[in-house]
Amino acid sequence: MSWPESDELLVELARTDRQAFGELYERHVKRVYNYIYYRVSRQQDAEDLTARTFTQALAHLPRYRQQGVPLYAWLLRIAHNLVANWYRDNKRLLVPLEDAGDLGSRDGNPETEAEAGEERRTLLAAVAQLPADRQQLILLRFSEGLKAAEIAVIMGRSEGAVKALLHRTLEGLRKNLSERRPAAGKARTFPFGGR
């Protein structure tokens, strides 16, 4: 079956047709899983929360029309709230990113790989120290690849405010990293890697 390209039309179909909801799921599951994975860092928890996100989306689909936001933004809002509840219920600290899976360099050179892995861990540890909204911003921008305007919809801010917040967040991160690695900061002009 061929489905409409527009999410809006597909949502209308999905209200009565489960296969249409399955198509919506296929379109957005990667993005939702990726966001959750980087927030909770463990595959099992990411899978559990992804399932809960889509189950909740299915249950609340009639409300979607009233939100007036793109579907992916609505789904990421649900995911964001579920992750926040998960942290609250499990009394966890917001420091998961540094434990995220090892996705470092794979160029075959053990030394380069080790260095890249260490840099990545340091960077993710610094990101993990950020307040939740800034972690969310970093993930949406760099991992999800969303534009500032799209993030603005999800975070309920203006596009300009998102750009300014990202700028300030990067400045803060850079400062944090140079404090963590003063020797590296002196040796290089920039905190991470070469061009």
Partner: peptide
Amino acid sequence: LRQALRPVEP
């Protein structure tokens, strides 16, 4: 950051 936060698939 872009390199460190490469998308992860289920």
